[in-house]
Design a protein around this nucleic acid. Sequence first.
DNA 1: ATTTAGTTGTGACATTTTTCACGGAAGGTG
DNA 2: CACCTTCCGTGAAAAATGTCACAACTAAAT
Lengths: 210, 210
Amino acid sequence: MDERKSIPVPAAARLCAVYRLLCDLSAQGVNFVSSGDLGEALGIGAHNIRKDISHISGGGSGRSGYDTARLKKQIAEHFGLENEYRACVTGLGRLGQALVRDGQHIFKELKIVAAFDSDLNRVETIDVGVPVHPTYEITETVKRLNIDTAILTVPDPTAQECAERLITGGIKGIMNFTATHLKVKGGVTVRNIDLAGEFKILSALMFLGG
Amino acid sequence: MDERKSIPVPAAARLCAVYRLLCDLSAQGVNFVSSGDLGEALGIGAHNIRKDISHISGGGSGRSGYDTARLKKQIAEHFGLENEYRACVTGLGRLGQALVRDGQHIFKELKIVAAFDSDLNRVETIDVGVPVHPTYEITETVKRLNIDTAILTVPDPTAQECAERLITGGIKGIMNFTATHLKVKGGVTVRNIDLAGEFKILSALMFLGG
DNA sequence: ATTTAGTTGTGACATTTTTCACGGAAGGTG
DNA sequence: CACCTTCCGTGAAAAATGTCACAACTAAAT
């Protein structure tokens, strides 16, 4: 039962990548795949792949490697990867707009059902395919629409405040595109994607490596 | 000289975050800051911050903590964070478009000077503020315009091929928004941001944590 | 039935990364 | 000028993560 928590986060992340790869392979009609092939495609050592899979007690078998469909199913079940989530996009800057429009395409299991923005003018006029509400209605709307996941693309200074409203509304997971580190209570999962930061890191690594 | 390589990548990444924070503080007129405050704001232990800074032999001092401006400068110099890079966006889907339009805003030190797309029709008609070329002109254009950084937002299957063209043109760093793991020669730095993957990881962690 | 080649599962090992404890320096204060 | 508080630097301990070697197993081939 608590075995779940015992899976290291990086391992879980890798397994998600494995899952995606398995989806591709499955669609291509590949029925078996070895840890070596998986590792090759993902740029990870085969040992590592096997160890990760062993965490969820995968049933790879014998000489032909892993059964694509079966492993895929195992990973999906272990991590709830095929559950559907109801999401909202908070902050309709360009990135927010792009995400609300492409969200469905990027991540099938994510149903974006609402968006928020602090600019009332924009709320009235913008058309992104889902209802747009002003930020002061976040808590109420999240509650009403039963939204469990939030995509946060607001300007840095307002991030913490928005997050709190979202959480009060009942959000359980936040994809944080803000550079601010969110302080959240237990039970709420945050994943940070700091684009500006990533670019800085890239340039730093380029500088060090060159 | 090789001290540089001895800085662990996660530490470098954290220092980039510290740098950004220092920029903010500096702009706010804060002249000194303690490792504790930095850690607090970034959600990292103070010990960790100090250790990271020690890698670049920072000159934090005495009772009042670090000199904001000085530390900022030290980090910037050590990682070349204020160098300007010439970049191109490859793949003008919605995300690509958003990035080429907002790139300057998101990352000041990145000058986006060109974009590429495989759809010739789109190449002719789209207006994103920079010249758009067809993908088969990547190598030549990158060479001609002296571009050193690439933002890769093409569909997964074409990623490796595009990357190779970019590299042949002389690219030194790639921000890879593709789910494919790029195989590149030494000397080329890749940083992966797999949005779909990140969403899956978020949902996995939510599932495990709830 | 036996062999053989190929692949997994895993416990021990190595490395990396984080945490900690404490000496010592800097700057106010009386 | 001595004191006292606050904070940094760092080497050593601890934890987490990744690597490896090898036994066990499977499926096909002979």
